[in-house]
Nucleic acid binder design. Structure first.
Lengths: 240, 240
DNA sequence: GTCTATATTTTGATAGAC
DNA sequence: GTCTATCAAAATATAGAC
């Protein structure tokens, strides 16, 4: 046994994708997934490079080889997350249908996505609380796509006389924010389920989705002229 | 001037509050305020003890004297923030009035509070994204008070036949989440105002408040029997 | 109560062998 | 491409003088 067992120069297969079995992720992919987990769970500052490497079962130095820094890795994760969301909601437009159904589909798409990509709510919430410190233009573009999808639905609804005029950004926030927070609060609700009445802890996601859809559609509904509803009493105390 | 200028044992006035001028905060108070700023801006892990001390213009060691650790200081801030919110919304109940006005008042109270205590949205969002890691029972109690205030309003409305049955937690999230996110996103919207259409960047807070109130009231409204509105078409794709 | 060191650990990052 | 070893800079926390 001389040096015959010494592998020529490298045993690892080069970028050869094709024999894609089950979990034959590249190390780069493993790192991205592990990073998404860490960043979602701990935030940018709370996330530790060592922990990401450990989770990915890869050496720390590889992070700096593939990505340039912790911050760059984070931006990659951010972009990936938002790209996926943008894609998910865009699909709703392709399905088509009447505006109110499309809007329901939009709500459902976001909600479904919080299940399919559980890191997404925390990462979005955190990045916003962070003031969007790490949001660069490429990431912003993806966020805009989400907004444009909703904007198109709203405009179609308005053209059809089904919706009143509404600000897309505001509408989007009223839809997305509760869904994000619902996912994010799952751990606390679980932790304190002993202390809280049953209907505070065991809430099916569908109840939230229903509420958000109903509320949004109702807010967009064109008031029927025969309506007896008073015009939303303005209260004192206007803010800035 | 021998040693006559040497103060007996301490010059700093003890807990003597009363000559409360303008900014005669104790060092402890300065620390709490500075900590709230830091934690809101950077999160628990991102916040640095040195920076908090610097902001408060006091020595770092004082933090460990007054509070026991960074975590304990953070919990103090959390408790303070939530206690203040709970108090603000509770006031709405005292004012009274018909249920829909009270609910409008609740929305307005939360919105007003995001202005009066600008750290509140970020701190809340972050702590939730954190999975409520630092939420202990005392803090939970304050959160419950907020929920109980809303719950009482909803129940009163239901009794009066003005509201349909609704889950208080879900309703609360649909109200609070958009308001929090609106405040939190201010920096990003400002930063990218050049790239985004006008109505995405310059949104008055009142528009958000109006949307949230309108949507919530509409979702709670008892459907008039003569209504032609179809029962919120259920879309496929139910989530877990 | 308040400050000056300073100990101790953790962490992001890199050099260089294989 | 991947790993070992290691540095240098933070960052939390404390001891102890005043």
């Amino acid at each position: 046994m001389v040096s015959s067992h010494r592998l020529p120069s490298r045993a690892r297969r080069p970028p050869r994708r094709g024999d894609r079995g089950q979990v034959p992720e590249t190390r780069r992919e493993r790192l991205l997934a592990a990073a998404a987990d860490e960043f979602a769970a701990r935030g940018f500052d709370g996330a530790k490079v060592d922990r990401i490497a450990a989770r990915a079962r890869v050496n720390k130095a590889l992070i700096y080889y593939y990505f340039r820094s912790k911050a760059a890795l984070y931006r990659e994760v951010l972009l990936d997350v938002f790209r996926t969301v943008a894609g998910a909601v865009a699909a709703v437009r392709d399905v088509g249908g009447p505006p109110d159904v499309q809007l329901g589909g939009f709500v459902q798409a976001v909600a479904d996505h919080t299940v399919r990509q559980p890191r997404f709510p925390n990462i979005w919430l955190r990045e916003m609380a962070e003031g969007g410190r790490h949001v660069d233009e490429s990431i912003l573009m993806e966020l805009r796509k989400v907004l444009e999808t909703l904007g198109a639905i709203l405009q179609e609804g308005k053209r059809a006389g089904a919706f009143v005029d509404a600000n897309p950004f505001v509408t989007q926030m009223a839809i997305v924010a509760p869904l994000l927070l619902f996912s994010a609060t799952a751990p606390v609700r679980e932790r304190f389920k002993k202390l809280a009445p049953a209907h505070f802890s065991a809430i099916p996601r569908s109840v939230v989705v229903d509420h958000v859809r109903t509320a949004t559609l109702a807010a967009l509904a064109v008031p029927s002229p025969s309506s007896t509803r008073r015009p939303a009493s303005r209260s004192r105390g206007e803010s800035q």
